[in-house]
Computed example of a mutant assay.
Amino acid sequence: MPITRRLTLIALAAALAGCATTATMPSTATVGAYRESIDLSGRLSVNYLKDGARESLNGNFNWAQRPDRTDVTLNSPLGQTIATIAVTPGEATLTQSGRAPRSAADIDGLTQQTLGWTLPVAGLRDWLQGYAVDEQGRRFAASPANNSVSTKDGWRLRFMSWQDDKAPQPMPRVINAERSAVGDIQDLQIRIVIDPAA
């Protein structure tokens, strides 16, 4: 796998995990469907422009989220582990295959140290459950009838399909996220496909 694509996959995994340190957690009293502990797996694809060239990559992920920790494993399409991420309130650790772990106080800083730019998908801890914070800072709960939002940190989200679209607060199955620019990356497009619950 070319080094640029490998590093981008690692950055994406870091961004996925990074949500634990930056996301505003909803109150269970006001958002009854939100779960602070979830285990998910799925696939993701990334497309972007860098230095005028279109790049794309694909991978698989496993996501384990607890109130005080998020763990992400990112695998190549053939199943090799590319990176593991562990995020707690005070520390983020990124371990690339065959390399020593690197740690920082937050995942955005760790991504910056590792790759030279930050991919701040800070809301993904919410997105995977169909929630976001909109441009005005209001809580957004996605549904089949209300499936798109622009977030406070500049992402355009579209919840494309659902695990069970008849549930009171359905869990997403496919999420498209876009952003015009992130550092020297332009036209960033991320598609997340969440596997059905076992």
Results as ranks from 00 to 15, higher is better:
residue 2 P to Y: 02
residue 2 P to G: 15
residue 4 T to A: 08
residue 4 T to E: 13
residue 8 T to I: 10
residue 9 L to A: 15
residue 9 L to M: 15
residue 12 L to P: 03
residue 13 A to D: 08
residue 15 A to W: 09
residue 16 L to W: 12
residue 17 A to L: 03
residue 17 A to Y: 03
residue 19 C to H: 15
residue 20 A to M: 11
residue 21 T to E: 15
residue 22 T to R: 12
residue 23 A to R: 14
residue 24 T to I: 06
residue 27 S to Y: 05
residue 30 T to K: 13
residue 30 T to L: 10
residue 31 V to F: 14
residue 37 S to T: 15
residue 38 I to E: 08
residue 39 D to C: 03
residue 42 G to R: 09
residue 42 G to A: 01
residue 43 R to F: 02
residue 47 N to W: 04
residue 48 Y to A: 05
residue 48 Y to F: 12
residue 57 L to Q: 04
residue 58 N to W: 00
residue 59 G to P: 08
residue 62 N to P: 00
residue 62 N to A: 10
residue 62 N to W: 10
residue 63 W to E: 08
residue 64 A to M: 12
residue 67 P to Y: 15
residue 70 T to V: 14
residue 72 V to D: 05
residue 73 T to Q: 10
residue 74 L to W: 15
residue 74 L to N: 05
residue 78 L to I: 01
residue 80 Q to D: 07
residue 81 T to M: 11
residue 82 I to T: 05
residue 82 I to H: 11
residue 83 A to D: 02
residue 85 I to M: 14
residue 86 A to N: 14
residue 86 A to C: 08
residue 90 G to I: 12
residue 92 A to H: 09
residue 93 T to W: 02
residue 95 T to C: 10
residue 95 T to Y: 06
residue 95 T to D: 03
residue 97 S to I: 02
residue 99 R to L: 15
residue 99 R to V: 03
residue 100 A to Y: 08
residue 100 A to D: 12
residue 103 S to D: 02
residue 105 A to V: 11
residue 106 D to F: 11
residue 109 G to L: 08
residue 110 L to W: 04
residue 110 L to D: 01
residue 110 L to A: 12
residue 116 G to V: 01
residue 116 G to P: 02
residue 116 G to W: 00
residue 117 W to A: 10
residue 120 P to R: 02
residue 124 L to D: 11
residue 124 L to S: 15
residue 124 L to N: 14
residue 124 L to C: 12
residue 125 R to Q: 06
residue 126 D to Q: 14
residue 131 Y to P: 02
residue 134 D to M: 07
residue 134 D to I: 06
residue 135 E to Y: 12
residue 137 G to D: 10
residue 139 R to Y: 09
residue 143 S to A: 09
residue 145 A to W: 05
residue 148 S to I: 01
residue 149 V to N: 02
residue 150 S to W: 00
residue 152 K to F: 06
residue 157 L to S: 03
residue 157 L to E: 01
residue 157 L to D: 00
residue 159 F to Y: 09
residue 161 S to A: 11
residue 163 Q to H: 09
residue 167 A to L: 01
residue 167 A to P: 07
residue 168 P to R: 05
residue 169 Q to A: 11
residue 169 Q to P: 04
residue 170 P to R: 06
residue 171 M to Q: 14
residue 172 P to G: 01
residue 173 R to V: 01
residue 175 I to A: 05
residue 177 A to H: 04
residue 178 E to W: 02
residue 179 R to H: 11
residue 184 D to L: 09
residue 185 I to R: 04
residue 188 L to Q: 00
residue 188 L to E: 06
residue 188 L to T: 06
residue 189 Q to W: 01
residue 191 R to D: 00
residue 191 R to P: 00
residue 195 D to G: 08
residue 196 P to E: 00
residue 198 A to D: 07
